[in-house]
Amino acid sequence: MNPAASIEVRVGDNTGNRQFLVFSLGEEEYAIDILKVQEIRDYDHVTRISNAPDFIKGVANLRGVIVPIVDLRIKFRMENAAYDTNTVVIVVNIGKRVVGVVVDRVSDVMTLAPEQMKPAPEFGVGLPLAYIQGLGDLGGRMLILVDIEKLLTSREMALVDETGESRAA
């Protein structure tokens, strides 16, 4: 899919409605395309990996598949990245890879109509514009629509070899 920074309307559903999985990091609410989500599981049994950035918590066993676990709270420099009973891992499918993303809480699945999806502001959302698809307006609630694929395959996440190589080259 085209990871455009501006808001993107998926055709296929006549109404242009899209479904998002809503989760929270600290006080903010984020949403990612539901189609990228494979499953949601508890945070446990994560094996630390040496020489990895702090937001890569390690690897975990997902039914025989070894997946890296990324803590977005640490990546976004949030305080209080605590692990409690609410802490969950959203397992996402990006390209051919499977990655677990640690978040504070998963709240619900929302359907957003095109008019509810607004372009992202130039600044003030905490993470680079490139990784934001837009803002979801739910009356009083604001959702930050994250382009999870673009975010996780970015060089900064250091999850993928290729990007590192292309930089070194």
């Binding site: 049994h45 040496s50 975990a60 066993n61 070894i66 070899d161």
Partner: peptide
């Protein structure tokens, strides 16, 4: 490397009896 990348000093991983890696 299937879902992550090469880690120095580590050739691969495995899953232990308790489900941990």
């Amino acid at each position: 490397e299937t879902n992550y990348r090469k880690v120095p000093g580590v050739s691969a991983a495995t899953i232990m009896g308790d489900g941990s890696v």
